[in-house]
């Protein structure tokens, strides 16, 4: 009789231990999931900040920036500097590699282009390096495109696609 009672009590204790273990495992799994989400969120934020800072880097590059433009709050890109830099992509293979090697440190895996919307519609690709990334963060920055020969301003958009 006593043996049966103690067996039942033992089974009860084992049951309680199993339930507590299950609850603890559940808790650990949920905590791990939250932590993983939080880390993924931080990585995502970091990449977004990188894309935003890349857009600021590009608009302030002397290779593209207008030499004489005093307006505040808007980025100005020189039309002939865009033509010159996008022309680099059409040169021989060695020079393309050299060009990429130099700008890769600034832009990494990205597609940077300027779309002139007015007065003429034209697209200029400044830099293209897809890498192996698939997710794309895209930033559009409206810019003034200055033609130093006619001394007129056009309207365009700088499009930055960052491959993660």
């Amino acid at each position: 009789m006593k043996s049966k009672k103690s067996q039942i009590q033992l089974a009860e204790s084992i049951g309680v231990i199993v339930v507590i273990t299950f609850l603890m495992v559940m808790g650990i799994v949920v905590y791990h999931r939250f932590r993983q989400d939080s880390i993924e969120q931080q990585i995502r934020e970091k990449k977004e900040i990188d894309a935003v800072s890349l857009s600021n880097t590009i608009t302030s590059l002397p290779e593209l920036k207008c030499s004489a433009f005093s307006s505040e709050g808007v980025s100005c890109i020189d039309l002939y500097k865009i033509k010159a830099i996008s022309g680099c992509l059409e040169k021989t293979v060695d020079e393309i590699n050299y060009y990429h090697d130099y700008y890769y440190d600034y832009f990494y895996n990205a597609n940077i282009s300027v779309i002139q919307a007015y007065p003429e519609e034209k697209t200029y690709t400044i830099y293209y390096e897809e890498g192996s990334g698939k997710n794309i963060d895209q930033i559009q920055v409206p810019v003034t495109i200055y033609d130093p020969i006619s001394e007129t301003n056009g309207f365009g958009v700088l499009i930055i696609k960052v491959f993660n």
Partner: peptide, 8 residues
């Protein structure tokens, strides 16, 4: 709008 204002 700032870029637009300066467009010739």
């Amino acid at each position: 709008i700032i870029a637009l204002l300066q467009t010739n």
